[in-house]
Design a protein around this nucleic acid. Sequence first.
DNA 1: CCTACCGATCGGTAGG
DNA 2: CCTACCGATCGGTAGG
Lengths: 209, 209
Amino acid sequence: MARTKAATHDQQRNAILEKAAELFAEKGFHATSMSQLAAACGVSKPLLYHYAKDKAEMLFSVADSYMDTLVALVESVETEQLPPDAHLTRLIARFLETYADAHNQHRVLVQDVRHLDDAPRQQVADKERAVVAAFARAIAAVEPGVSEKGLDKVVAMILFGMVNWTFTWLRANGPLTYEDMAPLVTGILLNGVHGTLGAASKKTNNAPD
Amino acid sequence: MARTKAATHDQQRNAILEKAAELFAEKGFHATSMSQLAAACGVSKPLLYHYAKDKAEMLFSVADSYMDTLVALVESVETEQLPPDAHLTRLIARFLETYADAHNQHRVLVQDVRHLDDAPRQQVADKERAVVAAFARAIAAVEPGVSEKGLDKVVAMILFGMVNWTFTWLRANGPLTYEDMAPLVTGILLNGVHGTLGAASKKTNNAPD
DNA sequence: CCTACCGATCGGTAGG
DNA sequence: CCTACCGATCGGTAGG
């Protein structure tokens, strides 16, 4: 038999972290027991401790690797060298696509990271800060008036609000999809920022004149 | 001595629920023990069970009475009979004021209500639905194109995203206050909705021409 | 016979 | 990779 131990080890680990993300997202970190996770994975509880040193490390792995995905996404869009409006539009669309595919990881990031100890939580927060900064730059490029008023990070957080809040109400099987949200959020942000914070208050209009 | 027993009972109960909201907001419902709550209140743990039949009832009382505040706020603004733009502007401003004063209750509502059993959770959710419906009506009055496209509830949720997300990042002692957020959120929403979803795409402009 | 409240400890389950 | 357990702490309640 071939030595496929490392491969199956990683597969098993990924399956366990995927299931952990699912349970943490549904019930919350502290309301999920290691016994429940073991049962859901069809393995014994002690086996879980072969893949993570404790429960908190599982939470960290889920959140940190998801942040790696988001950081990579931002860098990938930056290499496209798009003009400002298209760049911000692409960022929002790619984020919503990612949320749709990693719904559980996203909820864990938003609702459970605060239960980590200082050091690992800080590691995740640093990556979050890099992503926020990238969005703030993209917003400033679209509308220089925003950063002149020192509001680029604030507007970025308002955008994250619109985008991140969807996970609390958008049903996966509902009539509206994450893809439908992208043009809506993009339209409201671009028109809103130009109208409210634009130096000349010029307008970006998706509707026919 | 006067019979002030009922008054002190209610005072004690309110003090305990206030402290419960604080701990639940900071640490989360399941990460807060009744022993910690008792210690934080300076009372014995059994005394807590004189004011609530169990831990879940404390969570329910915090969330449900906070929703009563929000429902009353919406009704109070409706009795002002303001024109559409002013009505929506007032709703947003009053909500952000309330969040600033009831920061802990708000976080508990957002992050811990899901840990309630079906029946009490549904009771809170019904009040939430009434508030969302009121915002959807206010948005539809401002821009009829939104409800014609069947997006009034969706735009209301986008607005709640901008507003509710602030509790995750806005520091109480930071340079930006909840009051500063109101014109920003209102401006982005009104300009965004008019520009993106307006039948004639007319513009609401806060900036000088 | 009630309320308000204590020190001590219950049965069960958590993470490990 | 399992059964069998641990020290500790959980939410909740006993007697007085």
